[in-house]
Design a protein around this nucleic acid. Structure first.
Lengths: 131, 131, 131, 131
DNA sequence: GTGGTCTAGACCACA
DNA sequence: GTGGTCTAGACCACG
C-alpha cells in the first residue's frame, strides 16, 4: 500500500518512488509482477497521472521496473539496482559521519547511538500487501 | 570563512547557516564575538542581503546567535544549542539506520561502512578565521 | 524461433520484423517457404494477432514476404530487399560516425572500438528452425 | 541556436537535450556559462516550459549542467559526462556491428563504409552562437 | 526574476 | 486498455 504524506516537504513523486523501492527490496513485489497502471494508481491515490508517470519513469531509469508500451509496467530484476542503492545509503552514512566529526562529536558519541538499537532486518518474510 | 557551493542542491541560506553553526561548535567563533554585518557579508559573498538576513534569522531562532538593536548580531552561548544539534544528528543517524534495515541491509553491512574511517574530530584547535 | 524481449524499449511488432528479416537474410527461411499463420504465431508467442498482422504487413511492404489470398504468406526473393537492408545499415553507421565526429571523437577512438571485435559472420549455416 | 524538427519522431525534449549536449561537447558553451532560462527558451522555441524543464532535468541528471534555485542553470564541467557519452557511442557502434554481423554482412562491407569518409573532427574552433 | 512541482486534460503509438 | 509526450496554467521556495 502506498501512503502519501502531504505535510512532508519531499515531493509526492519521490515518496512514491521510495515506497515502491522499499517494497521491491523487501521482496513484497517480485520480479515480473505487474505494477498498478499509471491511471489506476493515480485514481487510487487521488493524484495526477503525470505525477505517477514521473515516479515510474524514474524507477525505470534506475532499473527497478521496466515498462512495456501498451502492456504496463513490471518489476525488474532487483539485483543491480539493489547494490547501487546500498552504495547510496553508505554514502549518506559517511556524509553524516563527516558532519558529526566536523561538529566535534566524538566517535563514541556517534557510534553509541546504535547501542539502543535492535537490528531486526532479515525480517524479509513476505508481508500482507494490498496495493 | 564561508564557502558557497552553487552546485549543491541545498539553498544558499542553509549553507550559510550550517557553516556558521560549525564554526561556533568548533570554537572558532566564541561567545559574544560580533557576527559580520548582513551587508558586509552579502557584499563579500556576492549574494543578496535577503539571503544573509534569512540565515541570521534562522540562527537566532535556534539560539546560536543573538541580535542587539542598532549594534548587530553576536555569538550566543553554544552549550544549549550544541546539545540540541547533537540530538539532531543522532536522529538523522537513526533514520538512516531504519532505512537501511527496511531495505534488508545487515547490521554488519551498515556498521562496516565505518571500517575505512579514521575519525579525526578532536581537531578542535582554532583555525584561521577570515570571514 | 522468435524471441521477444519485453524489456526492450522497441515495440513488439518491430522485434518480430527484425527477427524474420534476419532469418531470411541468413538463409534459414528460403524463398517460397510459408510463413507461420498469423493466428498460430500469435498463439505461440502469446501476443495479440494484431501485432503479428502489423509485422507481416510491414514485411510485405518492404518486399521480404508476399501474401496470397486464402493461402497465407510466403518468403520472397531476398536479393532486392537484402541490398536495401545493407544500405540502411551503412546509413546508420554513417549517421553514428557523424555524431561521433560532431562530439569531437577522433577517428582512432571511433575505429578502435572494433579492435576487440572478432567478426564471426559467414556463420550462415542453417539453424534449427522451430518457430 | 536550438532547432526543432517537428517531423522528427523523437520527442522534442530529447532534441533539446541532444542539441545542448553537442554545443557543450564542441566547446561552444563553456563551463559556468548560464543556460537560457526555462521560460525564456520556452518562449523562443514556442513550446511549453515543462518540456524545457524536462530537458534541463535530464541534462542535469547526466552531469552536463547544474541548476541553482532562483538563479538559473549553468554549464557543468564537461569532463565526466563527456567520457560517459563516448562510451554510449561506442556501445551503439558495437550494437550496429552486431546487427551487421547477424545479417551476414562481411567485415569488409562494414568497415568499407568508412572509406568515403573524411574525418574532420578536431574542428573544435568556436562557432558563432546566437542562442 | 529563477528553477521545481503539481494538476487537468489532451493526443499518440502500441497491444 | 497501456505507457509516453506535450500543453496550459498554477503555486512554491529561493534570491
Amino acid at each position: 500500500m502506498i501512503i502519501l504524506d502531504y505535510t512532508d516537504r519531499r515531493p509526492i513523486y519521490e515518496q512514491v518512488i521510495d515506497r515502491f523501492r522499499d517494497l521491491i527490496l523487501r521482496g513484497v513485489l517480485e520480479q515480473d509482477m505487474p505494477m498498478p497502471s499509471v491511471r489506476a494508481l493515480a485514481v487510487e491515490l487521488s493524484i495526477n497521472p503525470n505525477t505517477i508517470q514521473r515516479a515510474y519513469a524514474e524507477l525505470e531509469r534506475s532499473g527497478w521496473i521496466y515498462s512495456v508500451r501498451g502492456k504496463g509496467s513490471f518489476i525488474a530484476k532487483p539485483e543491480n539496482a539493489r547494490e547501487e542503492h546500498y552504495r547510496e545509503i553508505r554514502k549518506e552514512l559517511l556524509d553524516l559521519a563527516g558532519k558529526a566529526m566536523q561538529c566535534g562529536m566524538t566517535k563514541e558519541d556517534f557510534l553509541g547511538t546504535f547501542d539502543s538499537l535492535s537490528w531486526n532486518a532479515g525480517n524479509t518474510e513476505k508481508e500482507e500487501t494490498s496495493l
